[in-house]
């Protein structure tokens, strides 16, 4: 990956769309790629393309060292904290999107039919999430006026961290149970499959 350390301000011309692809931190207008943030201009060379006939162009992007604040986008994976539950939905405060922090917590909702992929009608909220749990979920829709819609249907999504009623951190023992190591009590949650 070759890089030139040129600092660019928003609105600078970087290259032509004929020669480069536009990456994050840039936008295209009238066949020209312009930078859209203040950062360092970087060029990523094209990977060797074997199956595609078209020649892949190198990608032009602008990088910024400081944390860039994210907003939830459809399909992104989020980490959030369950704030409230009721039998039909759980309110989640979205804290991170795709490993980038949010400036301020966004509001999301996991409806009871989006908690599991199978046997959706048999799901009970009290056995899936409790207030205070940290969950990993996916954004499925921009939602309504107040909240984004989230889903934990995938195996890797669900509760990643929870505290038992005694106040100790629990360990997941199956996809629907977590155990408190000190008191040995088992509580029901929809757990996320630990990623190795």
């Amino acid at each position: 990956m070759s890089s030139e350390s040129v600092i660019v301000t928003p609105g600078r011309r970087l290259g032509l769309t004929q020669e480069y692809e536009s990456g994050p931190g840039t936008y295209v207008r009238n066949g020209m790629i312009y930078s859209s943030i203040l950062g360092t201009k970087k060029i990523e060379q094209a990977l060797a393309e074997t199956s595609d006939d078209s020649i892949k162009r190198p990608m032009l992007f602008v990088e910024r060292q400081n944390t860039k604040f994210a907003i939830p986008v459809i399909g992104s994976e989020i980490l959030g904290r369950v704030v409230r539950i009721n039998p039909r939905a759980a309110s989640v405060a979205i804290m991170m999107v795709d490993s980038a922090p949010c400036q301020e917590d966004f509001q999301g909702i996991v409806r009871v039919q989006d908690i599991r992929a199978t046997e959706k009608d048999l799901v009970q909220m009290i056995n899936s999430f409790r207030p205070g749990d940290i969950i990993r979920a996916e954004v499925i829709s921009l939602g309504d006026q107040r909240s984004y819609f989230l889903a934990t249907t995938k195996n890797e999504h669900g509760v990643v961290f929870a505290q038992s009623e005694a106040g100790n951190s629990m360990i997941p023992i199956s996809w629907e149970e977590m155990q408190d190591p000190k008191t040995q009590t088992i509580e029901k949650r929809k757990c996320a499959k630990p990623v190795t």
């Binding site: 301000t9 928003p10 609105g11 859209s36 943030i37 203040l38 910024r64 604040f69």
Partner: peptide, 11 residues
């Protein structure tokens, strides 16, 4: 806005 990293068309 440029310092905040917000995407702009131009300054």
């Amino acid at each position: 806005l440029a310092d905040a990293g917000i995407e702009l068309y131009d300054i």
